[in-house]
Every structure is written in C-alpha cells, then in structure tokens.
C-alpha cells in the first residue's frame, strides 16, 4: 500500500472517477485555473477541459442549485463549496432541495450529487471561517453526510459518494490535507453509513470522526504508554449513522468518550451518547464524556483559538475521568 496525503487521496478519487465516468464533472470556485484553493484539483483543467472542470462565480446557491438540476437530468456533478462556512448561503439547496426531491415527488427524481466542502478550525481565520457545523447538516433525513478521518477512507468514501444515487455532503477538514496514511492500490470504495474500529483496546471506547480521529489516535499513544488501551470507533458517516461498532465496543469496555471538533450542544456527541444510553444503559459503568469545542465563536488569536478547540490532552483527561 502506498502512503499518500489526504489531499492526494481526495484528488486521486476525483480523477479516477472522472476517468471512469464521463458524466462526472466538478464545479466550484477556483477548481479550474487556480487548481483548487486546497490544490486538490491541480492539473484537472488541462487534462479534462473546461466542460468538466468548471470555474463558477462566487455564488454558492448557483453552485449547489445547478448541481442539483444537472444531477436530476442524469449527470453526476461534484459541486465544491470552498469551505463549509459558505455552505450557509446555499443552505436551502443542501438541506431543503437536494434531500427532498426524491421523496417529495414520489420517487420520480433523484439527486446523485456530491457536495464537497472543507470545515474545521485552527487556522486563525476568525469566527466566520473556522466552524465545524457538521451536526446541522446531519439533522436532515434524505441527505447523506460523510466526513473521513484517514486518506484511505477519504478516497474510498468519495468514490462511493460519486457513485451513490443520493445527495452526499462530503466534509473534509481544512487542516488535514497534509496528513499521510496508507491507501490501498487500485479501485475501491468505502461504504457510506458504515463505522469502523480504527484501533482496538479494552479500557474505554472513543467514538469520533474526522479530525477527532487524529486527536484520539494521538491520545491513545499517550494512554498506551501508561498501560491504558482505548478502542477507537470512527463513525466516518454521520448520516446514515452506523452505531453497530460503537455499541459493540461500549458493551465490552462499559465506558465511552465522544470526541468531535464542533460545539457540544445538540451535536454529534449528544446524539451518539443518547444512542449508547438508549441501547446499552445497563452496560455503562461511568457517565459518558464529551470532548468538543468550547461554546464560543472561535477567536483569531492563535493561542486563544487553540484553547477553544479540543486538544489531545482533553481526550486523555476525559478517558481518565471515565476510568
């Protein structure tokens, strides 16, 4: 298996899918001449041409809205929203149009659209550009929401999303493009709506996804040095949400910590904790803990921003609290 960056894995997935199916095309701000603001689509314009690599105006409603329309008539668009913070200006399309079309017209239409975007904080971009609002989007039935934590899953999930017949919001993390990981050779997909145990252990179950996986893996190394072996379940998809591996692990460890980068109120941790309690209350030997972002709009100051974001030490501390 090759070791490549998250950026390369995502880029490869797009490239291979565009080679595989002429109906797949990408559109968004700066995807073409610029090569993508995170350099994911560098070289695409020269290879695939303007028809399939479409620079758009700064108009998110048009980017997602036109993606919906094109997908309804048989294409497989990948609409790119530069950051998830800009998804709010296309909110109607993401939560109120794309997820409704199939059901509202009695199954006549489908929206095989991928909306690629990047979220997350830690880059000193201020309150409006640093958010992790994933839970908001995962609230809506009809929309699929995935957010990978490793290059291998990013590649496999993006390919699966492009081949999926429903709208998929594909959330990357803006501070994770440089992370490296092993990626299988050849063509493969990673199923949407399937969680995965990324690390085995018996002391505490950590349920997480995306950047939280990186924090949790680092915390696991520290804890392991102290003889504490945590099990890490990576949700990978927020909707549909596969609770199977998390439940199985919780029944084994009887303790859980949920790690997410977004705010805790009404968040992924709240949902996962409730589901664990609902399905396995009798197995709990300690209250479930949540590690998440402090409840403020993120500040610009680097130290203050990091203080507000969840850190490896927070995960370590939470694990020790539930032990």
């Amino acid at each position: 298996m090759a070791i490549i960056t998250m950026r390369q894995a995502i880029s490869d997935a797009l490239w291979e899918e565009m080679e595989r199916d002429p109906k797949v095309f990408i559109m968004g701000q700066e995807v073409g001449v610029w090569g993508g603001t995170y350099a994911v689509t560098k070289g695409f314009l020269d290879h695939f041409g303007e028809k399939r690599v479409r620079d758009t105006p700064i108009a998110e409603s048009a980017i997602v809205g036109a993606g919906i329309g094109a997908s309804m008539v048989g294409l497989r668009p990948v609409s790119e929203i530069m950051t998830i913070n800009f998804a709010f200006v296309a909110m109607d399309y993401i939560v109120n149009e794309a997820p409704k079309m199939h059901t509202m017209f009695g199954g006549q239409m489908s929206v095989p659209l991928v909306i690629r975007t990047a979220g997350g904080g830690g880059r000193q971009l201020g309150a409006t550009h640093s958010q992790t609002p994933d839970a908001i989007f995962a609230h809506f039935p009809g929309l699929k929401v995935v957010s990978p934590g490793t290059p291998a899953d990013a590649k496999g999930l993006l390919k699966a999303a492009i081949r999926d017949n429903d709208p998929v919001l594909f959330i990357e993390h803006a501070a994770m493009y440089q992370i490296r990981g092993e990626v299988p050779e050849g063509d493969y997909t990673t199923p949407i709506g399937v969680s995965k145990v990324q690390r085995e252990g018996d002391a505490v179950t950590i349920v997480t996804y995306c950047k939280g996986l990186q924090l949790s893996m680092a915390a696991a190394e520290q804890l392991s040095a102290e003889g504490i072996e945590v099990e890490i379940v990576d949700l990978r998809s927020l909707r549909p949400l596969d609770m199977g591996p998390a439940l199985e692990s919780f029944k084994k460890t009887n303790r859980a910590v949920i790690v997410e980068e977004g705010w805790p109120s009404y968040g992924v941790g709240a949902e996962v904790a409730t589901r664990l309690y609902e399905a396995a209350f009798d197995y709990a030997d300690a209250p479930i803990k949540r590690v998440a972002q402090k409840e403020v709009p993120l500040p610009y100051n680097a130290a203050l921003e990091q203080f507000a974001l969840p850190q490896v030490d927070d995960v370590v501390a939470a694990v020790k609290e539930v032990l």
Partner: peptide, 11 residues
C-alpha cells in the same frame, strides 16, 4: 431558478 440552470447545463 439555479436548479433550472443546472438542468439546462445537463442538456
């Protein structure tokens, strides 16, 4: 309206 633009793009 943007959805219509997308349908026209499809054609």
């Amino acid at each position: 309206l943007p959805i219509a633009a997308g349908m026209a793009l499809g054609d």
